[in-house]
Structures are given as C-alpha cells and as structure tokens.
C-alpha cells in the first residue's frame, strides 16, 4: 500500500490491485461507520485506489492507514441486483469474435457471471463492474461514438458498464436494458453503487429492436 497526499486535505491510497482496493474500500466504510474518520466527506474507490477527501489531519492518518488490515470479506447483505438485458448491441458480433465464440455464446458468458461494482465515475450512476475473467477483456473502440443511448450495456478493458443516460462513449456495446440506472427522484438515486453485486439476465430481443438500430 502506498499513501499519497492529494493537496491539503485528501489522501490517495494506492493498493496492489482492484480486489485489494475493493477490500480496503469496504474496510474504510466500516471504520467510517464506527466513527473512525471524522470529517471525511468523500471516500471514492477507483480501479486500484481509494481517495479520502476532507481529512482533518492527513499526515497522521497517512501514517495510520497501512495498519488498517481489511477484515475477511463477508458477502454483503441485500442480495444481487438483476439487470435484464437484450443482447442486441451493435458490437456484440465483434466482441464475440474476440472471445472466439458466437454472439449467442457471448451473451451466455456475460449473463452467467456475477459482477460487483468496483467503482463509479464518468457520469452519475455509471458503475465499473468487474466479474468477467481476464480472458474476456476487450479494448475500447478506436473511435468513440458521439452518442451512446441510455441503457446501453457495454464492455471496456476488464469492466462492464451501463450508460445511465445518452452520452458520447467509446465502450463496446453488447446489449440494452430498460433498467433505470439513475433517478434523482428515487432513494437511492443510483441503482448501482460501489460494492453492489449484479447479474445481467438475458431477455428476448423484441421484434424491431434488433442490433440494426
């Protein structure tokens, strides 16, 4: 673990890998719930780091953090969020070809895995989900799309993500969901937050909503 200062009142904690970052993030949430991180406004997990912002005494906390061993992870209560997906994305054939399988098999592989939200970013409610094996990593598209529709289920690197709203994007689109990822009128607004377990369940591609869109 490396603890880096980020300005007057933030620490960036760098872990060995994504799994270590997730475990340390969970430990920080436990400690905060127990009152151990007074004043800390933000705890932001990311690919291999956790950012703490609003730290009153960053020098002291930086010295303490390496001693905070994550406890053995217990499965989080609250079960698994199911996200129904039509595997009709325009990049599904290309992704399947990279994996050396048919598009139907690619959909089965994706819907058989259990995912976890490693972190959020890019847009409110956009989660970076891990759960596919390393052999299923895919690159971003060479040319990003100027508009990816809301509900697009997409892959990039080791991650799966779902676009909460229409936006530009460079991820490979493999499907579409009607699930509402982000609704500020709802509590909580985000369907997916760091640590949430997720399964994508395949639903039939309805007539007229195929990959040709």
């Amino acid at each position: 673990m490396r603890v880096l200062r980020a300005g007057e009142s933030a620490l960036l904690v760098e872990l060995a890998d994504g799994a270590a970052a997730e475990a340390f993030h969970a430990e920080l949430l436990r400690r905060r719930a127990a009152g151990a991180l007074p004043g800390v406004r933000e705890i932001v997990p990311a690919a291999r780091t956790v950012l703490l912002d609003g730290v009153a005494e960053p020098g002291r906390l930086a010295a303490e953090l390496p001693g905070w061993e994550p406890r053995a992870e217990r499965p989080r209560a609250g079960g698994v969020v199911e996200v129904p997906v039509r595997y009709d994305g325009p990049d599904l054939p290309e992704v399947a070809a990279r994996w050396g399988v048919t598009p139907a098999e690619a959909a089965r592989i994706h819907s058989a895995a259990e995912f976890r939200v490693a972190f959020c970013g890019f847009a409110p409610g956009f989660g970076y989900l891990t759960g596919l094996g390393a052999r299923y990593e895919v690159p971003r598209r060479a040319t990003p799309r100027t508009a990816v529709p809301a509900g697009a289920v997409a892959l990039a690197g080791p991650y799966t993500g779902v676009y909460p709203r229409s936006s530009p994007g460079g991820w490979q689109l493999i499907g579409t969901t009607d699930a509402v990822l982000w609704d500020t009128g709802r509590e909580p607004a985000a369907l997916l937050s760091p640590g949430t377990r997720v399964r994508f369940t395949a639903v039939d591609v309805r007539p007229g909503t195929g990959a040709g869109r």
């Binding site: 980020a6 300005g7 933030a10 990311a46 950012l51 912002d53 970013g121």
Partner: peptide, 10 residues
C-alpha cells in the same frame, strides 16, 4: 493511469 479519484483543485 487506471482511473482514480480526483479532488477539487487537482
């Protein structure tokens, strides 16, 4: 870098 958290003033 792999994506990491950003602070105000970065």
């Amino acid at each position: 870098l792999p994506s990491e958290g950003m602070v105000l003033g970065a």
